[in-house]
């Protein structure tokens, strides 16, 4: 029986066994050398504090059957946005205390002759107590730590009339801001 006629299994078997024995001998006699590479992965996410609100005007339209009221003072909810509620969304990804602040000053007529004091603008957050603006920045919400995505706060507005307000238009630019307290 020649090599040509020797069954394939037989030929591979003797050669394979020989190779395996040689590789084993090499593995035992020569120390193994494994190549590894380590990459340092750094994730740098900046500390971020962000707020967003719909682009709308908080409006009070005082007219119709409900004005003048049976008695003063009387409170009127905002007619815009819908339901008199403004959604204010806040995002914070850092530790520490952050606060949401609202500053409303006096409403003034275009000519500046008539004024509705800021104290007659009322607001409440998430259905809480009604509070009055006072012309200075007021903390309306505080939280420790980061938000889970965007945190939405419902801020409702109302206007108190004392009966002394002249007819006409009044306008003011209020400021809503978020601030993170410095850590020590």
């Amino acid at each position: 029986m020649t090599e040509a006629t020797t069954p394939l299994v037989g030929r591979i078997g003797r050669r394979g066994l020989l190779v395996a024995l040689l590789m084993a001998a090499v593995a035992l006699l020569v120390p193994s050398a494994a190549a590894q590479a380590t990459w340092s992965v750094d994730s740098l996410i900046p500390e971020t504090l962000s707020i967003r609100v719909p682009t709308t005007t908080i409006s009070f339209v005082i007219a119709g059957a409900g004005y003048p009221p049976a008695a003063f003072p009387a409170t009127y909810p905002a007619t815009s946005p819908d339901g008199g509620t403004l959604p204010v969304q806040v995002f914070s990804n850092a530790a520490g205390v952050w606060s949401l602040m609202l500053e409303v000053q006096d409403l003034v007529s275009p000519a500046g002759a008539a004024v509705v004091p800021a104290s007659q603008v009322m607001y409440r957050v998430n259905g809480g107590l009604w509070l009055r603006a006072d012309g200075s920045p007021q903390v309306i919400y505080s939280q420790v730590g980061q938000t889970v995505g965007w945190l939405e706060l419902r801020v409702e507005f109302a206007l108190e009339l004392t009966g002394r307000e002249l007819a006409g238009s009044y306008l003011v630019n209020a400021v809503v801001s978020a601030i993170r307290e410095p850590g020590f």
């Binding site: 500390e47 962000s50 908080i58 306008l171």
Partner: peptide, 30 residues
Amino acid sequence: GVAFGQAMSTGTDHAALTLSIGAEVAQQVS
């Protein structure tokens, strides 16, 4: 920082937006 229909402000430790508040009191006698 501006998406359609919304105003947004972003900062490291401070962000601020301006809100317009308007009142229209109709002339009335009673």
